[in-house]
Design a protein around this nucleic acid. Structure first.
Lengths: 118, 118
DNA sequence: ATCGTAGTTTGACATCTCTCGTAGTACGAG
DNA sequence: CTCGTACTACGAGAGATGTCAAACTACGAT
């Protein structure tokens, strides 16, 4: 098989109803994680962990992706040796309509504001 | 004078431009502080610290209000012996349009969701 | 079977966070 | 000046967090 099929190893995700606003906010309150989510939203696609160029080691990266998954912000799935990450847009929209977009817009604004004069 | 005028003791607040999204999210990711902000938004008025009935001691309350102030979420002013707290709606709206309302709506939704079946 | 790539696990460490209790300060009222 | 109320400061403790390095596992390719 040369196909990259979803492999074994299941990962624990909270159900939609179990997602807590506080946990989502906490997950997004870290610059590294906010950056991850921004890229994920911009690309509108599933990305593997290694496609993010973060200024931290691999183990720290693993840690941040886990926080995002356990808070319900992203969904992770193994495909071959890669671990694909996708935003849980539908679940978040269902729970907190408009919130994700507001947050992403706020992050964009801030990035523009801080980036323009740097 | 029996008037309750704003008194000396100045409190350090971040300027509007200094407010960081990450800090705001971090401030709101604590249940106690999210509760405070919800009440503040509901009452649409300045409230003194002592009007909040929080299940923690006074010193912990002081701590939470300070986190909210230093992150730019609330503005605090002394009036006599009381310390009045107000949401920085204009500043937040100017920086991150729609964000505060989305957050408050999300918090309301979650409170309704969790409260209905408790 | 071997190798390389992708990601995990473990343990460590410094820092931060939430909490408390006790003692202290600022102010208004009398 | 003294008292009560409102809030602060300090010190402490339990636990969470972000980070790293080193050793490990899972998978695809050869």
């Amino acid at each position: 098989m040369t196909e990259t099929a979803t492999t074994g190893r299941a990962l624990p995700h909270p159900e939609r109803e179990q997602i807590r606003l506080e946990s989502v906010l906490h997950a997004l309150s870290d610059p590294m994680r906010l950056q991850i989510v921004r890229e994920l939203a911009a690309k509108e696609a599933e990305l593997s962990c290694s496609q993010f160029e973060l200024p931290v080691t691999k183990s720290t990266t693993t840690h941040h992706f886990r926080v995002l998954r356990e808070s319900g912000v992203i969904r992770q799935v193994y495909r071959g040796t890669a671990k694909m990450n996708g935003l849980r847009r539908d679940d978040l929209e269902g729970l907190f309509p408009g919130l994700l977009d507001s947050l992403l817009a706020a992050a964009d604004r801030q990035a523009g504001r801080l980036g323009d004069e740097g």
